[in-house]
Design a protein around this nucleic acid. Sequence first.
DNA 1: AGGAAGTATAAGGGATGCCTTATGATCTGC
DNA 2: GCAGATCATAAGGCATCCCTTATACTTCCT
Lengths: 216, 216
Amino acid sequence: MLQDRVEEYLGAIYRLRTGEGEPLPLSQLAEYFGFSPVSIHEMIRKLDDGGWVDFHPYRGVTLTERGEASARALLRRHRLWERFLTDSLNIPWDEAHLIAGDLEHAAPELVTDRLAEFMGEPDACPHGGPIPPALQSSEERCLRSLGAGAEARVTRISPETPALLRRIAKQDLIPGRLLRILAQTETETRVHLQDMPEPALSIPETDAQAIWVELM
Amino acid sequence: MLQDRVEEYLGAIYRLRTGEGEPLPLSQLAEYFGFSPVSIHEMIRKLDDGGWVDFHPYRGVTLTERGEASARALLRRHRLWERFLTDSLNIPWDEAHLIAGDLEHAAPELVTDRLAEFMGEPDACPHGGPIPPALQSSEERCLRSLGAGAEARVTRISPETPALLRRIAKQDLIPGRLLRILAQTETETRVHLQDMPEPALSIPETDAQAIWVELM
DNA sequence: AGGAAGTATAAGGGATGCCTTATGATCTGC
DNA sequence: GCAGATCATAAGGCATCCCTTATACTTCCT
């Protein structure tokens, strides 16, 4: 459900929109991405179905609370990368902007939060855009790194190996799900999912290493 | 031609292979990725067609010189990211390994080379794997950042917006192509391609910002 | 040498995210 | 109020990279 392009669209909507709750016309997105209006529309419908945006026919899209939060987090990651690339690696800011556009999708919040710490919590990107604060104490942790008893919410699967994604989807271990760790052994993690009938789930060690959660 | 998965496969072959020129059996790749042997075989055929590997039926795959270079560069990027994540951001090395697996695809060589410089040119990753040296003085530059007269080789398109990729493919501005910059203006870059009949190509500023080259 | 196990290859499918073409619906300006 | 522009939506396509099923071919071991 959290496909590749979702974040990119949310980020574009976040940046392109103007005033208050004014919906952003799809034509603007079409121009921004250089895609056909039909493609934009198709994608927007998926975002609407997924609860990321509200689509107002003939008027445009607005971000839902969920979409807004996701876009803000994306922008934060983007601007922190920009700062790092320009300040620490001496990369010109226009190149940094492009590179940050790739990096913002690749690394979990954990990395950019540490990056912020590393740089002394900067509050603006190289060309002045404010860096949104981290919301919830978003310490993303690897499922493997937790002990029995821990309660957490799945935030991310990474790396997103398709085979892994399929296995994980089959067990409904999707982002947002709440779980409690029953046991950690060398080879597997036993987990109980909230609101699920099954008594417990066994996740092999290699899979558990790719599941990222946020402690509750 | 340089699809998403190519690097991942090359990297896996590079890491999994054992002795000298011994071909790596496809079954190993199937196990490594958790994909069906048929899928692996399909992908390997594409890599063979693309000149990245040599496929020896019933024996396995070997990397071509080109594939080898690409895999080595990938491993270098991977290990430099690992070092940075563990050393500078204090991320445990097992998590760092997973994150580096995403970052290695996201950032151009320029970033990891600067990262190496920033860290004092480390020569091993956190768990001891040697970091291959940068090959050619691979200073990737943005096409936009060069002046008229410069000669360069296209190395990368980033970010890889599909619309952009299509436009660029149409003009045959693919990685590897040699070009000379005729003029830079506010709005476009005029470029001559080696071995091409057309007198010159006009690349709009926004496209030129996503074209990365290596000076000759 | 023959049979089991492993490998190759063809054929057809699915999801994603883009495309085009085509038909209506709605909005806007005169 | 109507025409022309814009927008919505359906339908069919394409590329990528994975899947399964099924058949044929090779290798290896007894």
